[in-house]
């Protein structure tokens, strides 16, 4: 097997409060190959976005990379200098941010922000770049793109801003695309088109994609492999089909059972959705042992005391759970 395009190894992300380091993300490892889409799922606050931000060098205090390596095209992005990172960003690595408003420049028309990518990274002239920006807006299904290109971010609806974000991220055909909840503010039909766009890009250019979403259905459709995060840890990593058909970690199983699945009511009548008791703990209050143990219906005695290591599953993939240890 050839070397993966991206290899994240034992990544730790520290949240530093009053000089104390709390591991918001700990011992997270995964790889993504060229043309592959890797999914990351988990509840709010599990560390999905901070993991993506670490990959693109955008963690800011109080967050920082505490340990581990991020290997990408011969660089270690965990060690790389700010200038080199800036050069990679936009051209080889780009990100669709969860909150488009924070990522767009409020003082610049959106067409110009897209055009800038072509000027900076592709050596295009402004005239040419502005034309390509309009095409980019059309490709993400913005109606009347030539007029919209002149709008400022605050003049656009949430869904439109998200499409602009996507147009910027896809502009230069990156090698690695970090897509953080890329379609949450969009309608299902537009969502389907955007996902198709990402899929086509990945197939045509071999772009590796890290796809972050709450939507397990979307992840299953887009990804070959999936990582499930809970409280800063990767608790399960598998082929997408296996995860959904036969989840190994009780947390994964809980997530899947809590979904109202399309077609389930027609097949089996309306069943009560399964609830997972409790809430995700905050970074400063992670429990000892397995971080999921206080909410876990299948808890064993040792779960509260010892942190489970990763175990390889016979069917392929890995899990962090004493039931498999």
């Amino acid at each position: 097997m050839s070397e993966p395009l991206l290899a994240v190894e034992n990544l730790r992300i520290d949240l530093t409060i009053g000089g104390v380091h709390h591991a918001a993300v700990k011992d997270v490892s995964f790889t993504i190959g060229r043309g592959e889409t890797f999914g990351l799922v988990g509840e709010s606050g599990c560390g999905k976005s901070v993991t993506a931000l670490a990959l693109i060098g955008l963690l800011r205090p109080p967050l920082s990379v505490g340990a581990g390596a991020i290997r990408f095209k011969g660089h270690d992005l965990a060690q790389i200098g700010a200038d080199d990172m800036r050069r990679l960003r936009g051209a080889s690595v780009s990100m669709i941010f969860q909150e488009p408003m924070t990522a767009l420049n409020p003082l610049s028309p959106v067409g110009r922000q897209i055009a800038e990518m072509f000027v900076l990274h592709k050596g295009a002239t402004w005239v040419e770049a502005e034309k390509r920006a309009v095409e980019a807006l059309a490709s993400v299904r913005v109606p009347a793109p030539d007029r919209r290109a002149k709008d400022y971010p605050h003049q656009l609806s949430g869904g439109m801003r998200q499409r602009v974000m996507i147009a910027i991220a896809l502009a230069c055909g990156p090698d690695l695309l970090l897509a953080d909840e890329p379609t949450t503010a969009l309608d299902v039909t537009v969502q389907a088109e955007i996902l198709e766009l990402i899929r086509d890009l990945s197939a045509a250019r071999g772009t590796a994609v890290l796809m972050i979403s709450h939507d397990l259905g979307l992840i299953a459709n887009m990804c070959a492999r999936v990582g499930v995060m809970y409280a800063g840890r990767l608790v399960e990593e598998r082929e997408a089909e296996d995860v959904f058909r036969d989840p190994a970690h009780p947390y994964t199983a809980g997530l899947i059972a809590s979904l109202p699945l399309l077609g389930a009511r027609a097949r089996h009548g309306r069943a009560r959705l399964q609830e997972i008791e409790g809430v995700v703990p905050s970074v400063t209050a992670f429990p000892a042992g397995c971080r999921f143990n206080p909410r876990c219906a299948e808890r064993l005695e040792r779960c509260a005391a010892d942190d489970p290591a990763e175990t390889a599953l016979a069917a392929g993939g890995r899990v962090r759970c004493w039931r498999h240890g």
């Binding site: 969502q191 259905g217 979307l218 959904f244």
Partner: peptide, 13 residues
Amino acid sequence: AIPDPFEKKRTMR
């Protein structure tokens, strides 16, 4: 257009 975790399908465009 709804993605279904148990069935991979190409969406209708």
